[in-house]
Amino acid sequence: MNVRYLLKRTAQLIPVLFLVSVFSFFLVNIAPGDPINSYRTTEMTEEEYQALREEYGLNDPIPVQYLNWLGRILQGNWGTSIPNRQPVTALILGRLPATLGLMLSALVFSVAVSLILGGLAGVKQGTWVDKLISGFTYVGISIPSFWFGILLMLLFSLQLKLFPSSGMQTTGVNSFWDIVHHAILPILAISIGKIATYTRYIRANVISQMGEEYVVTAIAKGASAWRVVARHLMKNCMLPIITLVGMGMGDIVTGSFVIESVFGWPGLGTMSLNAILARDFPLMMGCTMLSCIVLISGNFIADIVCAQADPRIRLEGRTANE
């Protein structure tokens, strides 16, 4: 990997971010309704109201507002939320750990489970094990994750009372295990679709690798089936997994949206949702830009890691670019 390739890829990100910011800024601002008006109390005088509009720059034409916003963003100032007058960055940072923790656990869990399921289905191709796992993957990609979450909640919280049905912590309890206890059902709900998708890729990959000469050689040299799978096949399954995980990075903000709202998880998803409902422009923009940045960098990192892991991609990239 040369520095030029890296720089070039980084430079390609800028127009994307710019276009997304323009698009979402105008989208947010053509929305009917005055964001300040919703928070106008009866005690607020006309002067105070006008002062507030001025403070948020709402009297300027939209392109001017955009440029001002862009200038502030570039200086690291993401603005203040309208209803509670707190800095957007503080609000986002406050919610980030909850979402990040949930999504990363779900990601690790999904990858681990699908390596096992995909490996098993691929090695036992055509047997009932494979058919069972493939059947599960069909259901997994077709089931709405939020409905699966509701089912989990019905069964495990309302019927069996094994897990809490909502929130992240029991009030008054401040322990790590309490959070884990709250997180298990949401993690399962987020993971089902991911597990199904990853399992399919890994299964297909294992099957295609099984015919490769290096696998045949390893078997001929007396390596056990599990050694072949663990040492040889899985290594080669990492590329599609890296790509898939990278592509799924955008979910870190938006993918948990619906699951967070099912389980009342106090993360970025519920916050963005409320920001949209409350027409809280600065916060909406902040959440959109953050998810865009995460999505783009996820793809970007996946590309780089893949190129680093597989020399063929690196070389191909070079011949294509130079």
């Binding site: 949206f257 963005s272 959109t288 793809n299």
Partner: peptide
């Protein structure tokens, strides 16, 4: 690269 879900929700 647009977080389309968020944009669709906003729209």
């Amino acid at each position: 690269s647009i977080p389309s879900f968020l944009v669709i929700v906003m729209l």
